[in-house]
Amino acid sequence: MDKTREKMKRMLEEKEVSAILALRRNHGHPTPFLFTKAEELKDWVADEANRYPLTKLLIKIARKHQSDVIGIIVRGCEERSLVELLKNFQLRQGKVKAIGIACSQELANRCRCDQPFPSQVEEGQVAKPATDFSDLEEIEKLTEEDRFQYWMSQFGKCIKCYGCRNICPACFCPTCTLEDANLIKPGGMPPEIPIFHLHKAYHMADRCIDCGLCEEACPMGIPVRRLYRRVKKSVKDLFGYIPGEKEDEKGPLEFLGDGSYELPGAGK
């Protein structure tokens, strides 16, 4: 990672960026840190065991320092999230500079990532994409009743901590559907199921960048990522759209369209 460190150093010294958001080793733990001086970079780590939604932090930082260009270390998933956030005007074009790092093959396999590398990588080997949908197939094999039973017992564990939403690097709305009293009754534990999880799942259909942080964050171990992966797959199969891929392409569920999506089977 020395080459990346050199590059970060150069960027800070040449004032190409005013700060770089990355992880820092702090008493043995990687924590997010805004590097502003070149000499601080000796503590920088690219930790693989602990991923962190840095892009989500960047939204708050960028809002406060609107005239500054801020650098950020991105993996494949984080770059996709940057694209989504730029597309949805949460960050400003040209005010963010991404520095790509590649994931190891081990991490890519663990995440079942289909694009474990950003568009530009400074050093190292890029890992092969893992195209593993066994988690979805496992559920789809079940009968309808079993599937329902499976999901209801999973959703029933929910303690409504909103962890999956708060950590999601593609979620940014100031007013959230999940807190709307008319749609989901406030109070009560667990929340109204399955509506609570389905609302989020539908929202993720053309937004999910498949980073898997939601599932890692869930204190009750609900496999929410499977739900989002499934809707993401539907959108990909039906409309050929992959979230976070191209900056100039809008999600198919975000605009009315020209009718070319009018699908066979609808209205029959």
Binding site: I139, E140, L142, E144, E145, D146, R147, F148, Q149, Y150, W151, P194, L198, A201, Y202, A205, L227, R230, V231, S234, V235, L238, F239, P252, L253, F255, L256, G257, D258, G259, Y261, E262, L263, G265, A266, G267
Partner: peptide
């Protein structure tokens, strides 16, 4: 004009979603 275009898109995704959770 084209309000129903998005309905068509939404419904297919919704169908797949509710099927996946067992409805």
């Amino acid at each position: 004009g084209k309000g129903n275009y998005i309905t068509a898109k939404r419904m297919v995704v919704m169908k797949e979603l509710i099927q996946f959770i067992g409805l």
